[in-house]
């Protein structure tokens, strides 16, 4: 079920672009284009979002709502736990990971695993990704 919170419209618009549209759109880029790196899973996940500063604002709102999740390890675990292959999925190339996350966001909506941030109905996974951005 939905839980409720708060955000400005402008921040949300950027969030939508960052989390929803861009995850789906960019997942069509061939995966061989992604560059392997040695950053932590939290950094990797957070970096998938194009509009980091907006994501941070939204993430901060989410973490105020879910203070118990306000740790990088918890957020990474929760996000990975929802992906096929669990933590192993985090080793996928960037675009494959984007596609997995986009699928998970869709599934969140289908099953109403959503959170309400100042009225905006946001998927748990996208809110948690923003949470990571806020902490990194």
């Amino acid at each position: 079920m939905i839980e409720r919170h708060g955000l400005s419209r402008r921040q949300f618009l950027v969030l939508s672009a960052a989390c929803g549209a861009s995850l789906v759109a960019r997942s069509s880029i061939p995966s061989w284009l992604s560059i392997p790196d040695r950053s932590t899973p939290a950094e990797r996940l957070a970096r998938l979002l194009r509009h980091r500063s907006s994501a941070r604002v939204i993430g901060a709102a989410y973490l105020r709502h879910e203070p118990s999740e306000a740790r990088l390890t918890s957020l990474v675990e929760l996000i990975a736990g929802g992906l096929p292959g669990g933590a192993g999925a985090l080793r996928s190339a960037d675009d494959a990971l984007r596609a997995l996350l986009a699928g998970r966001v869709q599934q969140d909506f289908a099953e109403e695993r959503t959170v309400c941030l100042e009225g905006w109905i946001v998927s748990r996974t996208e809110a948690r990704l923003c949470g990571l951005a806020a902490l990194t």
Binding site: I2, R4, R9, F12, L15, S16, G20, A21, V24, A102, V105, Q106, D108, F109, A110, E112, T114, C116, E118, G119, W120, I121, V122, S123
Partner: peptide
Amino acid sequence: LEVLGSEVGRAGLGRVRVMLD
């Protein structure tokens, strides 16, 4: 509106804001 928000999110059409508490 929440259900609409979820269905619109699921279809990748956009996001919905509910303005009534």
